[in-house]
């Protein structure tokens, strides 16, 4: 099943770059990128409905960008996908999130297992300050109890995939906090990649970074395409246009929960969207 998705991703891809052979993990997630799909997803904070009936397919091995003005539920939706939403006190949800066709909220399924398969990169780079660069990369193994015989290989490969290896290869034992903001963010990407997730969620990963670091991260996303399904929340229209294959436009009208107004391929969304509001937004007339 997962092999098929990887193949589909490859056949879809514009880049012929092959998926590298990943260092073997014992007890990690199944290999390959996986499609993730939300069906009728709703989210509440307390009594307040913040997200209503989102149906969205994020195809395997492709980059889906979630765009929309602040407070329209993009980040909430993202956190719904890997079951981080339920950690917020008073949060509730409805609908289904299918990872590889299986509901992540199915009764008896463990959130920990879901989160291992769906990695997440946060808005602020947050490497673990008490760990070295190397330990940061390997932290996922330790935290999710995954074993690996070739840790050095895994560190190198993960940092390589995140585009950071050349910069830090000589100082793997320095604390992760000593890196620059952009490097820290790529370290966080490497940390997420080390457990070989099927999906990688990115919550405005560049909003705290300068333009150069932003470009490096975008390059990294480009290189990761096809290896892992990427869902990225961004406020930056150009960024969405540059990195994504698909786009979904979220909007919350006044006093109403957020909804998906439109979703389509990025090309269509930025040239001939069906909805006027989408056009207004992508052309920068509001938001």
């Amino acid at each position: 099943m997962t092999t098929i998705t990887v193949d589909r991703a490859r056949s879809n891809g514009t880049h012929p770059s092959p998926t590298p052979r990943l260092v073997e993990l014992i007890g990690g997630p199944p290999p390959g990128a996986a499609a993730i799909e939300a069906r009728g997803a709703c989210a509440w904070f307390g009594d307040r409905l913040v997200l209503e009936s989102v149906d969205l397919l994020m195809p395997a091995g492709q980059v889906t960008a979630l765009i929309g003005p602040s407070g329209c539920g993009k980040s909430t939706f993202l956190r719904l996908l890997n079951r981080m939403h339920e950690l917020v006190p008073g949060a509730a949800l409805d609908g289904e999130v299918l990872l590889d066709g299986e509901d992540v909220y199915r009764h008896g399924r463990r959130a920990q297992e879901v989160r291992t398969r769906i990695g997440m990169v946060f808005q602020k780079p947050n490497p673990f300050p008490a760990m070295s660069i190397r330990d940061n990369v390997l932290s996922g193994l330790k935290l999710a109890q995954i074993k690996c015989h070739d840790k050095d290989g895994l560190v190198e490969q993960s940092l390589e995939r995140a585009g950071l290896w050349k910069e830090v290869r000589d100082r793997l034992h320095q604390p992760g906090g000593a890196l620059s903001g952009g490097q820290q963010q790529r370290l966080c990407i490497a940390r997420s990649l080390a457990v070989h997730p099927n999906v990688l969620l990115m919550d405005e990963p560049c909003s705290a970074l300068d333009p150069t670091s932003t470009r490096r991260i975008e390059e990294t996303i480009g290189e990761l395409r096809h290896q892992v399904t990427i869902v990225i929340v961004t406020h930056n229209m150009q960024q969405a246009q540059r990195v994504s294959d698909h786009c979904a436009f979220f909007l919350a009208e006044e006093n109403e929960p957020g909804r998906v107004i439109e979703h389509a391929t990025t090309t269509k969304m930025f040239s001939t969207p069906d909805d006027r509001r989408t056009l207004n937004y992508v052309e920068g007339r509001f938001g």
Partner: peptide, 28 residues
């Protein structure tokens, strides 16, 4: 910072692991 706890949980850690391997070393 709560961000560190979130990062740890998002990597698939249990809460006990998070406290032991992330919170305690950070606050050591």
């Amino acid at each position: 910072p709560d961000g560190l706890r979130e990062a740890s949980l998002a990597l698939g850690a249990s809460r006990a692991r998070t406290v032991w391997s992330v919170v305690f070393p950070t606050a050591r």
